[in-house]
Design a binder for these strands. Structure first.
Lengths: 341, 341
DNA sequence: CTGTTAGCGCTTTCAG
DNA sequence: CTGAAAGCGCTAACAG
């Protein structure tokens, strides 16, 4: 049987209370007694039973997620992931709330932060917007002992504790690597983004162009089209592009609104063999892959991101450190052949 | 506060013991009482505190992993993953043992199974070998109430409870999809396997050839070379191949022993721009990717596989079902740009 | 068939 | 500074 606090107390000749004080390094123990207990702990190889500790403590963790209210499949996945984790976490004494925030609106995000902070949660997770007012309120939360974690889109230079999302520069480079090979290292590629003001989109583009320049200097990139993640607008822009550039060798869709792109591609027979790379595995991109309309989809797993955010906030609340490398979110590559399910 | 067993007992006007009997549907409760308690449970929205239950139960789970003793990096990863999970699981009342088995030797696997079974564990996880003697001993274990899970390589037609590994046919198809695009849909590709008697290798090859035939009929596949997963042998064979076929357009290494392949490629200047796809992200393949010697690496995450195996064995021990889709092991694709870390 | 009671391993008053 | 004792939510003898 594994040694327990009782064993420590017995072997060290002290009471349970003293053992507990040492274990949780609370004050009120003579240095000598403390040393004795600590020595005993390592000698008998004690490891704390966290479940029992939590049971006794009745510790309850409370976390809030702030999610943009944009209507796109990836954010739907994110919301579902939060609900799922919330349901599962109840049995681990973790309570998770979710608030909607107006998309791309720093003021709304700040307001939501304030509301969330009023409830004095242990942590807040949010899809950040790159804005100084947001940075300021993050600092406030931090000062109030609330751990802030960014999800999907980061807020560099702020006091957020962690970023649970992919490296978007690397994602852009990955897209370039694939594109360069798919089109045989030469030609002209088009790029459709949501908005270059969105940090993640900007970084993907930068990575894409950098890697192409480096590894495939024979490939030219057309000026970026901004589709605002809006299917209708993306469709319109894509149609224009496909007609204007019949010589197009490839297309990189680094934002959302792929429903529109798919329509445009389907309508354009000449686009049948155009290599297309997009982001996020949703119903739309999944179908496009199966159909052969898209060649590859880069993905960030919303479930992983949410779970990682919760783990980090919990660790922070417990005063523990997390191994950053372990929390790194991978850039998944999906072809029609390795789609999950 | 969340309702507890005490609340149920009080509201239903019964004792704790009766509540417990109903919760764990143990016999000895009148149908009427049972119904009353069950009604109360849903009415007050009770959810069991698993941690407390396990604490009271002092339930200890014991699982055994049987791992081949071959000397290759992927199996090293697998062993490390088992040790890691073993260390972590101790605090969850899970005890994990590991035994070495002679590689590719059914008799040794059967013997190890028997030894493991003697300890009456709750579950056994093994890298299966496709053999009827193995099937027979799996059936024995099953009859003895020990859940058997296959890892990495499956044993179809046996009574194993679950397979924690990738779909190797799909992996082969994925390799073909990439290869076909990388080489522009035409040319001749070479394939190096470990042994086609290994189920996973055979399936990868089948998937690869099938997808090439379907999607890239212009690509020819040379007769498979068997390198026995041995770096020296792989190197020798690869050198011969590279010299004999200077017209080679691509190379698919679907087994292990990639250290040898890398040497051969490095020695052959003409191979500098030969698209190469291999399996398992190890120190060797990782370096080859960075260097541009390999173009893509398909990977199965040993950590995921081991953790999934443990989850399934535990669920089985608890008489719970697992959602197979949730336990599906993904085929990761890595380029130099999206390598983790 | 049902209830009482004593824990599981840990924390937390409250005395001393 | 230290200890005794009660209790977290659940389970498991053992009586009735």
């Amino acid at each position: 049987m594994r040694p327990t606090v009782h064993d420590i107390a017995e072997k060290a000749g002290v009471s349970l209370a003293t053992v507990d004080r040492v274990l949780n390094n609370r004050p009120g123990v003579r240095a000598k007694t403390r040393a004795l207990v600590e020595e005993t702990i390592v000698r008998i190889g004690y490891v704390r039973d966290v479940a029992a500790a939590n049971l006794a403590r009745k510790r309850l963790y409370r976390f809030e997620f702030l999610i943009p209210n944009s209507d796109n499949s990836f954010l739907d996945q994110l919301r579902v992931a939060v609900s799922d984790v919330a349901a599962l976490s109840r049995i681990e004494r973790i309570e998770i709330g979710m608030r909607e925030v107006a998309a791309f609106d720093p003021a709304s995000l700040v307001a939501a932060m304030r509301e969330a902070m009023a409830g004095e949660p242990d942590g807040i997770a949010m899809v950040a917007i790159d804005d100084d007012a947001v940075r300021a309120v993050v600092a406030e939360a931090n000062a109030a002992g609330i751990a802030v974690v960014t999800v999907v889109s980061d807020l560099p230079g702020s006091e957020r504790v962690h970023y649970a999302g992919i490296d978007n520069l690397a994602a852009g480079r990955t897209a370039a690597s694939l594109m360069g090979r798919f089109i045989g290292g030469r030609g002209t590629v088009g790029v459709i983004a949501g908005s270059l003001n969105a940090r993640d989109h900007g970084e993907r583009l930068a990575g894409f162009e950098e890697a192409l320049r480096r590894d495939f200097p024979g490939v030219a990139v057309l000026p970026v089209i901004e589709g605002r993640d809006d299917p209708k607008r993306v469709e319109r822009e894509a149609v224009v592009l496909l007609n204007a550039r019949p010589d197009l060798s490839g297309l990189y869709s680094l934002g959302a609104g792929n429903r529109g792109l798919v329509k445009a591609l389907r309508a354009n027979a000449a686009a049948r063999h155009l290599p297309v790379i997009a982001h996020e595995l949703t119903a739309t991109t999944r179908a496009a892959l199966s159909e052969g309309l898209f060649d590859a989809v880069l993905n960030q797993d919303a479930g992983h991101e949410v779970r990682s955010a919760v783990r980090v906030m919990k660790a922070h609340a417990d005063g523990l450190h997390t191994v950053d490398a372990q929390e790194r979110i991978r850039i998944d590559i999906f072809l029609k052949d390795n789609m999950p399910q």
